[in-house]
Amino acid sequence: MGKIHTRYGDGSPVELEESEVMRDLENGTQDAAERGNVPALSKEEIQHLFDIFSSPYRFVGVEPGKEIVLSYDGTPIKLSRTQVNVDRLQCLQIYEKLLGADTLEMGYLDYSFKPIKSMVTYEQPLIEQILSVTTAPVFYGAMPNLPLYTQPDGPFPNPAELLPQGKIEEARASYEESVEHAVRDIVYVSSALYECGADAIILDTVGAAGDADYLASLKATEVLKEKYPQMCVELGMAGEFVLGMHGEMTYNGELLAGMYPHEQVKVAEKAGVTIFGPVVNTNTNESSPWNVSRAITYMKACCEVANIPVHVNMGMGVGAMTVHDHPPLDMASRASKAMVEICRLDGL
């Protein structure tokens, strides 16, 4: 029995026995199946994952013909973080011409709809210029980021302060008012960018503040699709299940709190979302085989019930990608190949 070089969820390297890799693959899918009430992976799928992890090569890829489309979030921010001094227009040209990007994503450094609203007139001419010097579809992305609507950053009382005091109704009222304001800001900014020619809008990190955050995004999508029936809205989630911070918020009669990806995608479809981006969080204490197996179990169930394209989130710390600024290529490529080959997904 040989040893297999792999990683933990935080990216640190580890060598596991073949039996340990197989055990982690089985435990990972079982964990997702139990939590999400979805089918576990089959023996054949587990064996396929084992084959991917036991491959001796430092980098692996999907079989020809199984390639998928890539979309992005916070693209210009990536280059700013690494202190590459190019403007956002050049950043998108780099992604298009040098990084093999299928789609481009324009976004502001303060990546939330609320701060963008006050300076959207500066975003409009820039996206017009970007659209005139690129060929690939250009998305505009930002987060609903509901906490920006509560004190000290916004007008409403802070639920994080109210809840520990037992002020449940006051906290719920705050969330409900935040939703209405967030919907207005998302619609305002998205309309402004779409009317300048943007190909699509990305609502990113949806649900980071819980069910209210998700509801705001669904409602905003509904308004936007009513206003612009041709508009493409990509909705990317923040976590694997919707946190019930409010606890009683519903969309079309469906309780949002506690929804897993295969349930989230159905309400997203009802709201008019064009492309759905589900998330599974990476557990840093478990091995990469465990995380990959677990993530794929959730994503496979989501892809199977979806009627719209699904772009699984596989950025840092999600979709079994390691929680580190510099994802190791051995692990990232294995996660990428495994996710694409087992799920019937449409993009990453």
Binding site: F59, V60, G61, V62, K66, E67, I68, V69, L70, Y72, K78, L79, R81, T82, Y95, E96, K97, L99, G100, A101, D102, T103, T135, A136, P137, M314, G315, M316, G317, M321, D325, H326, P327, P328, L329, A332, S333, S336, K337, M339, V340, L348
Partner: peptide
């Protein structure tokens, strides 16, 4: 998060359609 080599380029090479190098954008 994630540097473009570890994230964007890895996915593009491992699973992507290649963008304008091929027909990914289409």
């Amino acid at each position: 998060m994630g540097d473009p080599l570890g994230m964007a380029i890895t996915h593009a090479v491992a699973s992507g359609m290649g963008g304008m190098r091929a027909a990914g954008d289409l």
